[in-house]
Amino acid sequence: MLETFEPYIVGFLCNWCGYAGADLAGTSRIQYPPNLRAIRLMCSGRVDPTFVLTALKRGADGVLIVGCHPGDCHYINGNFRTERRIALLKKMLSDLGLDDKRVRLEWISAGEGEKFATVVKEFVEEIRALGPNPLEGNTNET
């Protein structure tokens, strides 16, 4: 293990809430750790579990998915699907030996820049405590 472990986090942010929230955090100059690589999608419902699995397989230490608050989805019910999908995916990941805390789903509105920064800060620390992704480098031995 490296002396200082810097978590690599992939974030899937929905266009209408999560990404706008991140934007607000930026324009408000709220500081948060640079470990998050944000990917903008039109809706958190677009997050295919394959994206999360692939991110983890390619070495992401954590995956953050941000959508609109329940009931606020721009596409009416995309985030309800996401919620069920991620719950199932987390169960599957923990059965595969990964800590399900490596995947986190959050609801952050366009007005919650402060919350966005807090969530990223928290998540980075949580992953830092968990350590590097055991899948990395394919040296995964049971």
Binding site: M1, D95, L96, G97, N133, P134, T142
Partner: peptide, 13 residues
């Protein structure tokens, strides 16, 4: 599949 076998979180620590 993408994650083809069970892994262990223990080893990474």
């Amino acid at each position: 599949s993408i994650i083809s076998r069970k892994v262990s979180e223990e080893k990474s620590k």
